[in-house]
Design a protein around this nucleic acid. Structure first.
Length: 884
RNA sequence: GAUCGCGUAACUCAGUGGUAGAGUGUUUCCUUGACAUGGAAGAAGUCGUUGGUUCAAGUCCAAUCGUGAUCACCA
């Protein structure tokens, strides 16, 4: 039989698309989607981290959106007016790079298209990518309020950016100035965290600088010889007795003969290198500080594209990275190169294009680090809480060492900085409304806007409230947001995202939210780990270990993928995703599917759960187990322990409901109707994790199709209810008896067969008439005798019985009626075989010549084999003795 | 260098001071009327190491070893 035509196998494909479409059409995802079960004044807000409009979803997105959807569906079913805000991010550098590559492939460039033409292409990319991404999100079964979908560059959010920029500018938190910044010759200015430092095996070049008075040479060591054109000093440690006498003297830079002074500065590490350090204030962060301290000249030696300039003599016009070899060769030729050693160090790369980043002096816009102060304080006062809690350490460490945040970017794609300059009177002002035509100070029409755009994270930082209408003016009001959104949905309740963007995004939202609205933007911050492959390796295209969420859905179903991600989402631990785990979840869906099949063998439809209608002992038992599962699931959900909640559901549904509930119901048909109701309620409990199959099975067990009934997703989430400890105790005993009987039967090789009689001894036999049929049915015994412990012992001892003794009871099976000869025969045969084996091995190992000549490994193996055989022998003999 | 994780069964991992747990794998058995993507019964653990706190430690504290991540660095 082929895969697809197999009987009794759950087929998710036909329902997923159909259900999703219905849910969305009925507006279930919207803030009033659960209106019929909404409780007064209960709101729940969570912002979707907007995916970049650069491409497709990866497995990390699947994780983060699955976890968010689980919480959102839970809260929605629990009666909260729920807003899960969707949207996408314009992702300045990343998107611009994608579009540039497209243009390159078409044989053109952004310069040829011009700014406006280029932006048209970028908008096209945005449209295509947004369609792809939201389509993929729908396949994941997630339930954000699609009608409110935003884009970080839509008109309303653009207004919010201008408004908050002005606010920050007016408050002195945004300034413009010449700073030493991180410069990518491809992407322009970067903030500190957009630079990735990577280990690099480079060289340490020792270069002679001749003293200007001709009295000799000093030797400096550098990893970047090409920067010597920008040297404006050489420094030594003032306490360095080897060299400090030279302070105040001058040296002549090789080849270009420019003279610079030897200065003393305690920044120098006397232990390292030669003790002489070349100082290049315009191209090194430390040297920049030294330069300021000593009032040195700042010589910039290459332009913003990285080409050497007039300060570099005959090397002018070369690209900075290409120039190194040439300079080294020339210095060597002229006799200035002393030696070149291998040297491991760290080199900064652009996080988007991997280009080597340069420290570079440039005039840019900055957010002052003081902007973070109140957000640091409030988070530490407990006004926001991290899950797992240890992330507050990283937050504090980073926020505490914050430097001014460079927010201007030399890009075209993004929010253009709302600052205008007057070409006539040099007036500079921020415009939060429409673009002005004249200078407000001198009325000149010769004005221009700053050509740069803002760092993407500036607008993302406003996301928790700009999407609620803050600063939007009238744009999309009543359409994408409502008047009272800020009141109802701000601060947000929860943020879920990967720990890798704690600094990029979370920290920025906290400081921008705090300063802009006076409140932290959210209460709980759940940071999940990254999805790795089954060996714990990071996924990457080059390694070929990427797991594609859509392929996975195709193979295992959306529910299986979601459940797998949830069950692996342990706080603070990487998620190692593997086919094995996905298979396990798929098997789980199949188990649920077949449980439904079983229930429907008995009756077609079942009532929704009403505890008062649960009357049979088994029904009451399963209800109590269900109530326990409700309590645990809710408890774990409330502290974002997705793995624990998922495990509880798995254990309850498979280990308790199917393995025991269904099996026991075969001995009590009257309980099946009750189990059906409990199963339907369990589908509600599981729904946030596996939305599709739960809807499907719930539907099958109820009257009517989804097309003409209310979805499971807007029904009340099961509430905690009383657990009947007494009935649990009774069934624990029943199950213990069944296991004991089965164990006993295994001893006589009748594990799977029905036997005539067995005796179970208990201390309390009050409920024996209730217990009897269950034990008989599941233990496969025609007639179970349940007796009080003290009475029967003597009778049993007088006959031949085998026994099993467990914590609370004893089971006896007579061997009189059983043909023991077969078992004894089997065991005897086994015994003989083992005897032969042991004799053979003993013979070999006692043979001196064997021990002396055989390879060590063979001897070890034989010894082990002997030990194993002896152990088995002891067991077999023990069993035979029992039958004697 | 600083900070933060992690170390528990063969593997992947839960474990919230109170008798060591799950899934997978493994051994034996079972096509038993929901399910072989299944069922039954088992075997399997010096909880990294050493100290300490406690009536009680896998759990709390200290040290140490191994391992990973993040941040910061020396030209």
């Amino acid at each position: 039989m082929s895969e697809t035509t197999k009987k009794n196998v759950y087929n998710p494909k036909e329902i997923e698309e159909r259900y999703y479409k219905l849910w969305e059409e009925r507006n279930y995802f919207e803030i009033e989607g659960n209106k019929s079960i909404q409780k007064p004044d209960k709101h729940f807000t969570i912002m979707m981290p907007p995916p970049n409009v650069t491409g497709r979803l990866h497995i990390g997105h699947a994780l983060t959106f699955t976890l968010q959807d689980i919480i959102v569906r839970y809260k929605r079913m629990d009666g909260y007016k729920t807003l899960w805000q969707p949207g996408v991010d314009h992702a300045g550098i990343a998107t611009q790079n994608v579009v540039e590559k497209q243009l390159l492939a078409e044989g053109t460039t952004k310069e040829e298209l011009g700014r406006e033409g280029f932006l048209e292409r970028a908008w096209l990319q945005k449209e295509n990518s947004q369609d792809a991404i939201t389509g993929q999100l729908r396949k994941l079964g997630v339930s954000p309020a699609w009608s409110r979908e935003r884009f970080t560059m839509d008109e309303g959010l653009g207004n919010a950016v201008k408004k908050s920029f002005k606010q920050m500018y007016d408050n002195g938190f945004i300034v413009r100035g010449n700073y030493m910044i991180n410069w990518c010759t491809h992407d322009g200015a970067l903030s500190d965290i957009e630079v990735e430092h990577e280990d690099h095996m480079g060289k340490m070049y020792h270069i002679n600088y001749p003293l200007a008075d001709g009295s000799g040479n000093i030797t400096v060591a550098t990893t970047r010889p090409e920067t010597y054109f920008g040297d404006t000093a050489v420094m030594v440690h003032p306490d360095d007795e080897r060299h400090n006498a030279l302070i105040g003297k001058k040296i002549k830079l090789p080849l270009i003969d420019r003279e610079v002074e030897i200065i003393g500065d305690s920044h120098v590490d006397m232990e390292f290198g030669t003790g002489f350090v070349k100082v290049t204030p315009a191209h090194d962060t430390n040297d920049y500080e030294v330069g300021k301290r000593h009032d040195l000249e700042f010589i910039t030696i290459f332009d913003d594209k990285g080409f050497l300039n007039e300060h570099c003599g005959e090397l002018q016009g070369l690209e900075r990275l290409e120039s190194r070899e040439i300079i080294v060769a020339k210095l060597d030729e002229a006799g200035f190169m002393v030696k070149i050693e291998d040297h491991a160090h760290q080199v900064g790369h652009c996080y988007r294009c991997k280009n080597i980043v340069e420290p570079y002096i440039s005039k840019q816009w900055f957010v002052k680090k003081e902007f973070a102060a109140s957000a640091i304080e409030k988070v530490n006062n407990g006004e926001a809480e991290f899950f797992p809690s240890h992330w507050i350490n990283s937050y504090n460490a980073w926020m505490g060492e914050l430097r001014d945040w460079c927010i201007s970017r030399q890009l075209w794609w993004g929010h253009q900085i709302p600052v205008f300059y007057c070409d006539d009177c040099d007036h500079e002002w921020v415009e939060e409304g429409d673009a002005p035509h004249v200078c407000p100070k001198c009325n000149s029409e010769k004005i221009h806007q700053d050509p740069d755009v803002l760092d993407t994270w500036f607008s993302s930082g406003l996301w928790p409230f700009s999407t609620l209408g803050w600063g939007n003016d009238e744009a999309f009001k009543g359409e994408l947001w409502n008047e009272d959104d800020m009141k109802n949905f701000y601060p947000n309740n929860l943020l879920v995202t990967g720990f890798d963007i704690l600094f990029f995004w979370v920290a920025r939202m906290l400081m921008m939210g705090e300063n802009t609205t006076g409140e932290l933007p959210f209460k709980d911050i759940y940071l999940h780990a990254l999805v790795k492959d089954e060996h714990g390796e990071k996924m990457s295209k080059s390694k070929g270990n990427v797991i594609d969420p859509l392929e996975t859905i195709e193979k295992y179903s959306t529910d299986a993928l979601r459940f797998t991600l949830a069950v692996l989402a342990v706080q603070g631990r990487d998620i190692k995703l593997s086919e094995d785990k996905l298979e396990q979840s798929r098997n789980f869906t199949n188990k649920l599917f077949n449980a439904t099949n079983f229930l429907q063998l008995n009756q077609e439809h079942f009532d929704d759960l009403n505890p008062e209608n649960i009357q049979t002992p088994l029904g009451k038992y399963m209800l109590s187990r269900f109530n326990l599962a409700v309590k645990e699931t809710r408890g774990f959900m409330d502290v974002y322990r997705f793995n624990d909640a998922a495990t509880v559901l798995y254990r309850f549904l498979w280990g308790e409901f199917c393995d025991w509930g269904i099996e026991l119901s075969k001995a009590d048909k009257a309980s099946v109707a009750e189990l059906g109701s409990i199963f339907k309620a369990s589908m509600k409990l599981l729904h946030p994790f596996m939305p599709f199959i739960t809807e499907n099975l719930y539907r099958r067990l109820s009257e009517g199709e989804l097309e003409d009934s209310e979805s499971i997703m807007v029904q009340a989430y099961p509430e905690e209810a009383k657990v009947d400890e007494d009935i649990i105790k009774k069934f624990d005993l029943i199950m213990e008896a069944i296991v004991s009987v089965r164990r006993c039967k295994t001893l006589i090789d009748k594990g799977n067969q029905k036997i005539e009689k067995a005796i179970v001894l208990l201390s309390d036999i009050n409920d024996k008439w209730m217990m009897k049929p269950f034990i008989e049915k599941l233990g496969k015994v025609e007639n179970i005798t349940i007796q009080s412990r003290n009475k029967i012992t003597e009778t049993i001892l007088s006959k031949s019985f085998i026994s099993d003794i467990s914590d609370n009871l004893e089971t006896y099976i007579s061997t009189d009626d059983v043909d023991m000869s077969a078992i004894i025969g089997k065991l005897t045969k086994q015994k003989e075989k083992l005897e032969k084996e042991i004799n053979k091995l003993n013979g070999m190992l006692n043979n001196e010549r064997f021990v002396a000549n055989a390879p060590e490994q063979v001897i070890v193996e034989n010894r082990q084999a002997l030990a194993d055989a002896s152990e088995k022998m002891a067991k077999v003999e023990g069993e035979l003795k029992g039958f004697a």
